[in-house]
Every structure is written in C-alpha cells, then in structure tokens.
Amino acid sequence: KPRTPFTTSQLLALERKFRQKQYLSIAERAEFSSSLNLTETQVKIWFQNRRAKAKR
C-alpha cells in the first residue's frame, strides 16, 4: 500500500497533538482523524511511528 503523503498542515497538527499527548484514546483518534481528513488507521500508525522516533 502506498505511503500517505501528509500535507504540511496535517503534519503540524499531528506534531502539536503529539506534544500535548503521546497516546490518543479511540474517541480522540476518531475525532482528530476526521478533523484532518485522514483515516483513523493513518493517525494510529503516525502516532506509533512518532513514538518509536521519540524513543531513538
């Protein structure tokens, strides 16, 4: 499956949310993903990858 090209504004929103909170609840993820026009899976995986990056 092809890589999702996130827009700059989506990335800024994702990073801002990640700084507030590294783990989103299912409800938060649902609301946040629809506000960004992304799927919940895209947001879930982005947060997983971002947490992995933060550990490195």
Rank of each mutant, 00 (worst) to 15 (best):
Gln20Val: 06
Phe32Arg: 02
Arg19Tyr: 12
Lys55Gly: 14
Glu40Trp: 01
Glu28Gly: 04
Phe6Asn: 04
Gln20His: 12
Thr41Leu: 11
Asn49Ala: 13
Leu11Thr: 07
Leu24Tyr: 01
Ser9Ala: 11
Ala30His: 06
Ala52Glu: 15
Ser33Lys: 03
Ile45His: 12
Lys21Leu: 04
Leu24Thr: 00
Phe6Glu: 04
Phe6Cys: 02
Gln42His: 14
Ser25Ala: 09
Phe6Gln: 01
Gln48Glu: 15
Thr7Phe: 02
Glu40Thr: 04
Ala13Asn: 07
Thr7Gln: 06
Val43Gln: 02
Gln48Leu: 05
Ala27Asp: 13
Asn37Pro: 03
Ile45Tyr: 08
Lys44Glu: 15
Ala27Lys: 03
Lys53Pro: 05
Ser33Ile: 02
Lys21Arg: 10
Ser34Pro: 11
Leu36Ile: 12
Lys17Ile: 09
Ile26Glu: 14
Asn49Gln: 13
Arg56Cys: 10
Arg56Asp: 10
Lys21Glu: 13
Lys44Cys: 12
Ser33Trp: 00
Phe32Pro: 02
Gln10Met: 01
Thr4Leu: 09
Ser25Ile: 04
Gln20Glu: 12
Phe47Thr: 03
Ser34Arg: 12
Phe18Gln: 00
Phe32Asp: 01
Ile26Thr: 14
Ser25Pro: 11
Arg50Tyr: 01
Glu15Phe: 00
Lys1Gln: 02
Leu36Tyr: 08
Ala27Met: 13
Arg19Ala: 14
Gln20Leu: 06
Arg29Met: 15
Arg50Gly: 02
Lys55Phe: 09
Lys21Thr: 13
Pro2Ala: 13
Ala54Val: 07
Thr7Arg: 01
Ile26Arg: 05
Arg3Trp: 04
Thr39Phe: 02
Lys17Thr: 09
Val43Arg: 00
Val43Ile: 12
Leu12Tyr: 15
Leu12Ser: 06
Arg51Val: 09
Phe18Asn: 03
Lys17Ser: 05
Ile26Pro: 15
Ile45Lys: 06
Pro2Gly: 08
Gln22Gly: 08
Arg16Glu: 15
Pro5Leu: 10
Gln10Phe: 07
Trp46Glu: 03
Leu38Lys: 01
Leu24Cys: 05
Lys55Trp: 07
Arg29His: 10
Thr41Phe: 12
Phe32Lys: 04
Thr8Pro: 10
Phe18Ser: 00
Leu38Arg: 02
Phe18Glu: 05
Thr4Lys: 04
Asn37Trp: 01
Glu40Ile: 01
Glu28Tyr: 03
Gln42Arg: 04
Ala54Phe: 08
Pro5Val: 11
Thr8Phe: 12
Ile45Phe: 10
Gln10Gly: 05
Trp46His: 00
Arg3Gln: 14
Ala30Val: 09
Arg29Glu: 15
Ala27Pro: 11
Asn49Cys: 08
Lys53Phe: 09
Ala54Trp: 05
Arg51Met: 14
Glu31Ala: 06
Thr8Glu: 14
Ser25Thr: 11
Gln22Thr: 12
Leu11Asn: 09
Ser33Phe: 06
Ile26Phe: 14
Leu36Gly: 08
Ala54Gly: 09
Ala52Val: 07
Thr41Val: 09
Ser9Asp: 06
Val43Cys: 05
Glu28Asp: 06
Ala27His: 09
Lys17Pro: 00
Arg19Lys: 14
Leu14Val: 00
Lys1Ala: 04
Asn37Ala: 08
Phe32Gln: 08
Gln48His: 12
Thr4Ser: 10
Pro2Gln: 11
Gln42Tyr: 13
Trp46Leu: 02
Leu36Lys: 02
Glu40Cys: 03
Glu31Cys: 08
Arg16Asp: 13
Lys53Leu: 14
Phe32Thr: 06
Ala13Asp: 07
Trp46Gly: 02
Gln10His: 02
Lys21Val: 13
Leu12Phe: 08
Lys17Phe: 07
Tyr23Phe: 15
Gln10Tyr: 00
Trp46Asp: 06
Ala54Ser: 13
Phe18Val: 00
Ile45Trp: 07
Arg50Cys: 01
Gln48Asp: 15
Leu14Arg: 00
Ser35His: 11
Arg16Cys: 12
Phe32Trp: 00
Ser34Cys: 08
Lys53Val: 13
Glu40Asn: 03
Thr7Asp: 07
Lys21Gly: 13
Val43Ala: 02
Glu31Phe: 04
Trp46Ala: 03
Gln22Ser: 13
Gln20Ile: 06
Arg3Pro: 12
Ser34Asp: 07
Trp46Ser: 03
Thr8Trp: 02
Val43Pro: 02
Tyr23Asn: 10
Ile45Met: 07
Ile26Trp: 10
Arg51Pro: 03
Leu38Ala: 07
Thr39Ile: 03
Ala52Asn: 05
Ala52Ser: 12
Thr4Asp: 14
Ala52Cys: 08
Ala13Pro: 00
Leu14Thr: 03
Phe47Lys: 02
Gln22Asn: 11
Lys55Val: 11
Leu11Arg: 00
Gln48Pro: 03
Lys17Leu: 13
Glu15Gln: 03
Glu40Gly: 04
Asn37Val: 03
Arg51Asp: 05
Gln20Ala: 07
Asn49Arg: 05
Arg19Trp: 11
Leu11Lys: 04
Arg56Trp: 10
Gln10Val: 05
Thr41His: 08
Asn49Ile: 03
Lys55Asn: 14
Ala52Asp: 15
Phe32Asn: 05
Lys44Val: 11
Thr41Pro: 09
Glu28Met: 00
Thr41Ile: 05
Leu11Pro: 00
Ser34Leu: 10
Asn37Arg: 08
Leu38Met: 11
Arg50Glu: 13
Arg29Ala: 14
Ala52Ile: 09
Gln48Ala: 11
Thr8Ser: 14
Thr39Leu: 05
Phe6Tyr: 10
Leu11Tyr: 04
Tyr23Trp: 10
Gln22Val: 06
Arg19Asn: 14
Glu31Met: 03
Thr7Met: 00
Ser35Pro: 05
Gln42Phe: 02
Lys55Ser: 13
Leu11Ile: 09
Asn37Cys: 12
Arg51Ala: 11
Phe47Ala: 04
Asn37Glu: 07
Glu15Asp: 02
Ala13His: 05
Trp46Pro: 04
Leu14Lys: 01
Arg50Ser: 09
Glu28Arg: 01
Gln22Lys: 06
Ile45Gly: 06
Lys1Arg: 04
Arg50Pro: 00
Ile26Met: 13
Phe6Val: 03
Val43Asn: 02
Thr39Pro: 10
Asn37Ser: 10
Gln20Tyr: 07
Leu11Trp: 03
Thr4Asn: 12
Arg19Pro: 01
Pro5Ala: 12
Phe18Thr: 03
Arg50Asn: 03
Ser33Gly: 12
Lys53His: 14
Ile45Arg: 05
Arg16Pro: 01
Ser9Gln: 11
Thr7Lys: 05
Ser35Ala: 09
Gln22Leu: 10
Ser34Ile: 13
Glu31Gln: 05
Lys55Gln: 10
Gln42Val: 11
Val43Trp: 01
Lys21Trp: 04
Asn37Tyr: 10
Ala13Phe: 03
Arg50Leu: 04
Leu12Lys: 14
Pro2Leu: 11
Lys44Ile: 10
Ser33Arg: 02
Phe6Ala: 01
Ala27Val: 08
Ser35Phe: 05
Gln48Phe: 01
Leu36Ala: 09
Arg51Ile: 15
Ser34Lys: 08
Phe47Asp: 02
Lys55Cys: 12
Val43Gly: 00
Ala54Pro: 10
Gln22Tyr: 05
Ser25Arg: 02
Glu40Leu: 01
Ser34Trp: 07
Ser33Cys: 06
Tyr23Glu: 15
Trp46Asn: 00
Glu40Ala: 05
Leu12Val: 07
Gln20Lys: 09
Lys21Gln: 13
Arg56Ile: 14
Thr41Asp: 14
Arg51Trp: 05
Ser33His: 04
Val43Leu: 05
Glu40Tyr: 03
Pro5Lys: 06
Phe47Leu: 05
Phe6Ser: 01
Pro2Val: 10
Ala30Thr: 11
Gln10Ala: 04
Arg16Trp: 11
Ala54Asp: 08
Thr8Val: 10
Lys44Gln: 13
Ser33Met: 01
Gln10Ile: 05
Lys21Cys: 15
Gln42Met: 11
Glu31His: 02
Phe32Ile: 06
Arg51Lys: 06
Leu38Tyr: 01
Thr41Arg: 04
Leu14Gln: 02
Glu28Cys: 01
Trp46Lys: 03
Leu11Gln: 11
Ala13Lys: 04
Tyr23Leu: 06
Val43His: 01
